[in-house]
């Protein structure tokens, strides 16, 4: 794959084993700066493993992952890359505000910036509630605020919209789009196909391999299908035929 100068994330021949089982079987891709890339695939396909490799918390067997031109997870990247884990990684015994203010402070951001991020995820009315007493969707949004507050250049989100109200989901996707327009690079995993159309580019992961790396429009065109769910199915059938 030819290197593109504007790639914010560059993955080459990445192989990851977990517990002796291959999870990622030599995957490569380029993710352009200032774009929203959707990482789609069924659960167990390796989405979280791929994401953890990008933020540098996953032990890798071979291959390289570079973010903003540096090896993933290295020190200079830690103030430029934010990671929102699948299960809300926040402190249940702290309030929403204390959680966001803590992560904000780690990056030298103020409490008022923390409140701004809380407002942006629609949690302003709950800022003083303990995180333990929040609903699942509210916890997810708090976790998201902890990442948004640092205005990262690269934002990596693992299934951020699971269990959210459709209205809030819509608002979040608008925010993701807004961040990308300001130049941020977003990698968002999802297993909901109806979110795929909101991405600039899609990575379809199945059994540890990318079976597609394309724009939504090109994916539909090349498979001759009307929706992405059908396109995904088409690709899987083609692969099975080929085997």
């Amino acid at each position: 794959m030819p290197p593109t100068p504007e790639a914010a994330i560059a993955v080459d021949d990445l192989v990851v084993d977990r517990g002796g089982q291959p999870v990622l079987k030599s995957v490569s891709t380029r993710i352009a700066a200032g774009s929203v890339t959707g990482l789609l695939g069924p659960s167990g396909s390796g989405k979280t493993t791929f994401i953890r490799a990008v933020v540098g918390t996953q032990k890798v067997k071979s291959g390289t992952v570079e973010v903003l031109g540096r090896p993933a997870g290295t020190k200079p990247l830690r103030s430029r890359v934010a990671y929102v884990t699948q299960d809300a990684s926040i402190y249940p015994d702290l309030s929403v505000k204390a959680n966001v203010a803590y992560f904000a402070a780690l990056y030298g951001r103020s409490r008022s910036e923390a409140m701004g991020a809380i407002e942006r995820v629609g949690m302003g009315d709950h800022a003083h509630k303990l995180a333990a007493n929040l609903s699942g969707g509210q916890k997810t949004r708090t976790s998201l605020a902890c990442a948004l507050v640092i205005e990262p250049e690269v934002l990596v989100l693992d299934e951020p919209t699971v269990g959210l109200d459709p209205v809030i989901r819509e608002e979040l996707w608008d925010q993701f789009r807004g961040l990308a327009e300001q130049g941020a690079t977003l990698l968002v995993s999802s297993h909901v196909m109806d979110e795929a159309d909101r991405c600039d580019r899609l990575l379809l992961l199945r059994e540890g391999r990318f079976i597609a790396d394309d724009t939504p429009a090109d994916l539909r065109a090349s498979t001759g299908t009307a929706n992405l769910e059908a396109a995904f199915l088409h690709l899987i059938r083609e692969l099975e035929k080929a085997n």
């Binding site: 890359v81 809300a88 402190y91 992560f103 902890c146």
Partner: peptide
């Protein structure tokens, strides 16, 4: 176990 350690390891901490 709550994932906050992993998250902290991706911050400047």
């Amino acid at each position: 176990t709550g994932g906050t350690l992993e998250r902290l390891m991706t911050t400047p901490t």
